[in-house]
């Protein structure tokens, strides 16, 4: 039996070798049959094929289904309400405010993060000690957002460290009630920028590292300033990575959540001025200080809309960032 199968296997392996000649198929080149390679491939994909629908697709679709129902969770009756939850989302003033806040994080926070990242791309490229600086700016990204929010929250108390420092420096005029409803969201955006910028700086610097150094040397010889080098070399040759970073920023910042909870704390619910869309969704899912039943259908409708918006924005950002690949000779 063994001999027969070996012979059969050998005859099989010979055919793809002819068919794929010149197409750089590693399996064929190393004498492994295409069918065997496919078999192994299928075998190894089975866990993913099983887990993806069970762990992601199923629950996601279930969430979409639930968004058409009124439901307080397991054990409670489920009533189908059609599009009612979606209509309610669009009519809800609190959701509207939370959405505006989220848009501010995406746009204003995004502008600040990418401005810092571009500045780093221009300055850090050939700076001494750049590895240390990169590590230092990346550090906030690995700290828990809850920890950052909580710490900043206490630093910004009326008699906290920030106001005390301003007082010591003779800048009493700048002292504020940072966490009151008028200022708290601005502080949250600053916190998000401080935490997020390190990651995007490191990400974009990897693209800068891949740019051949001789281009900059030639630019220097022709008298281009550092900003001109950034405009005509760094930016065009990092465009793909910038597009990827923009997609990541969009998807992540739309879900801004934990830093808000860290700022406000879990005693009480965040003021409407401080809520992001994800926080509002969390509150709708029953995480409030009140004693009402969760509105999981409503929260699912919010989640579905956010997913649709995220996909649309990601596609838009990808299209805006699309460009012909530049070849470097």
């Amino acid at each position: 039996m063994a001999d027969t199968s070996t012979a059969r296997g050998a005859s099989r392996s010979s055919r793809p070798a002819f068919r794929t000649a010149g197409r750089a198929r590693p399996g064929a080149a190393q004498g492994v049959s295409q069918r065997d390679a496919k078999g192994w491939f299928r075998l190894f994909t089975w866990p993913a094929v099983l887990l993806y629908p069970v762990g992601f697709l199923g629950p996601s679709l279930y969430g979409v289904v639930i968004s058409f129902a009124k439901w307080s969770g397991p054990g409670a009756p489920l009533t189908w309400v059609g599009w009612r939850n979606y209509v309610r989302v669009f009519r809800d003033d609190t959701v509207r405010q939370a959405f505006v806040n989220t848009a501010l994080v995406v746009l204003v926070g995004g502008a600040a993060v990418f401005a810092l990242a571009f500045l780093a791309m221009a300055v850090l490229r050939d700076m001494r000690g750049r590895a240390f600086v990169r590590a230092a700016v990346y550090l906030p990204s690995i700290i828990s957002m809850i920890a950052v929010g909580t710490s900043l929250g206490f630093l910004l108390n009326p008699d906290g460290v920030v106001n005390r420092l301003l007082g010591l420096l003779g800048l009493e005029a700048l002292q504020q009630t940072w966490l009151d409803p008028q200022h708290i969201f601005g502080c949250i955006v600053v916190g998000v920028v401080w935490m997020g910028s390190g990651f995007y700086i490191v990400l974009l610097m990897t693209a800068v590292d891949a740019i051949p150094k001789h281009l900059y040397e030639e630019a220097q010889l022709t008298g281009l300033t550092r900003m001109q080098q950034f405009r005509w070399i760094t930016l065009p040759l990092s465009r793909d990575m910038i597009a990827i970073a923009a997609v990541l920023w969009t998807a992540n910042s739309l879900r801004t959540f934990d830093i808000v909870i860290g700022f406000v704390g879990t005693a009480g619910t965040p003021s409407v001025n401080a809520r992001t869309y994800a926080v509002q969704q969390w509150l709708s899912a029953g995480h409030t200080t009140g004693g009402g039943a969760p509105e999981l259908g409503y929260a699912s409708a919010m989640a579905t809309l956010l997913t649709v918006l995220t996909v649309a924005l990601v596609v838009l950002v990808r299209r805006l960032g699309r460009s012909d690949r530049l070849e470097i000779s």
Binding site: D92, T289, G290, G292
Partner: peptide, 15 residues
């Protein structure tokens, strides 16, 4: 017992 009107309590009254 006003907190039983959870959505009203958190989205209307408290703000």
């Amino acid at each position: 017992g006003a907190t039983a009107q959870d959505k009203w309590w958190n989205n209307v009254f408290l703000p």
